[in-house]
Amino acid sequence: MPSPYTRKQRKGAMLVLIILLFCFLAYALRGFITSFFGALIIYTLFRSWHQKLVEQRKWKPALSTTMILIVSFLLIILPVGIVVYQVANQVVQLVKDPTVVTGIIAKIQHYPLYQKYVDPQLLQDQLSRIGQVAVNIFGTTLNGLANSIATISVMYLILYFMFAHYKAMETWLMQYLPFSPRNSYQYADELRNITYSNVIGSGIIAVIQGALVGLGFWLFGIPQPFFYGTIAVFASFIPVIGSALIFIPGSLFALASGETGHGIGLLLWGFILVANIDNVLRMVLNKKIGDTHPLITFLGIIVGLPIFGLTGLVIGPLLLSFFVLSVQMYTRNYLSKPASEKELEIKIVKEESTDSTQNPSDRKEDTDTNK
């Protein structure tokens, strides 16, 4: 019995079915999207190491994969998890303790400049809002850490198969990605540069700035320098205003406490050393690793933080960078005219301009010659 559907109808129905199944799977696995991006980041960072161990040193893929998974956990996951947990716990306890906030307000309200120019209720309202934001961000992270075992387990499960079968996976991607082989390799190189820039470059700058902020707090007698230096590491991912979110309130606290010299010293320390080290390091690292525009980083953080929490500091800019790269490649490959067509147009324009500038007598001689 012949089928009641044409080949075109069957093709359309199959495409709709594939899209529906993909949407269903994406919705069902939405809770593990962080696992996928985490696996992609770690794979990009350690792929060259794995390739050298397997292809040059002739290690077995399973052995190399196991070693890289252990190293990545000890160097990245474990330290970051411990630090984030400690900082989140302290932030929540700090904001929930009313004596801390009221003590800061009392000290600042006795400062002469505050009594002269500032509304007494303004500071209390602003501190309450800042505290609530801190509780929301770090409180969510604290609760997420308690339930992150499944996320990390899925991430490492994905990583294991990515590393153990990296050749088959990359061959499959090259086959099904909608790019030519040359564009696929270019896309892979750009993704690697973007990942290195956002993860390694921004991470190095953030750690150095956080250490300098903590050192400044210690030198100028601000309490808990390690705690606020650690917070400055996360704040430093935000372009332009990052570390200033920490050392400016610290200097204001010192001024309100009557330590005018310490407050001014910390302010100068922050703007002269901490803020400028960002520009110097970024210039050096951009030559070694790759450049990501600060606006992409800033907008990526705005997108990433509400969805991924603190991991959005890295995943958000990566996603936005991937989007910009995809648009650039699409424009270059499908909207721009091929080089041969451009050269033909340039040649035609030159010939027309030559004909238009030629003397009438010359054109007449050419006509007679042709005759």
Rank of each mutant, 00 (worst) to 15 (best):
I289F: 08
T297L: 02
G214C: 11
S321F: 02
G38Y: 03
I41T: 00
F163W: 09
D362Y: 02
P61C: 05
S326I: 09
R57N: 08
I301R: 00
K52G: 05
P317G: 07
G290N: 01
Q209N: 08
Y176G: 07
G242K: 03
I152K: 11
G312Y: 02
F323Q: 07
Y185D: 12
P249C: 01
C23Y: 04
I104V: 03
N136C: 05
W59A: 01
V16P: 04
I272L: 13
G290F: 00
E343G: 01
Y117A: 05
V284Y: 13
A26S: 11
I70S: 02
A88N: 01
Q358H: 00
Y185M: 15
D125Q: 15
M169K: 07
R192I: 02
L219A: 08
V101Y: 07
Q186H: 14
Q93W: 12
G131C: 08
F271M: 09
G265M: 03
M155N: 11
L21R: 08
L15H: 08
S64Q: 05
K58W: 11
H110M: 10
R182D: 11
T6N: 05
F237M: 01
G258N: 14
G144I: 00
N333R: 06
F22G: 11
Q126K: 15
V207W: 00
Q186R: 13
Y330W: 14
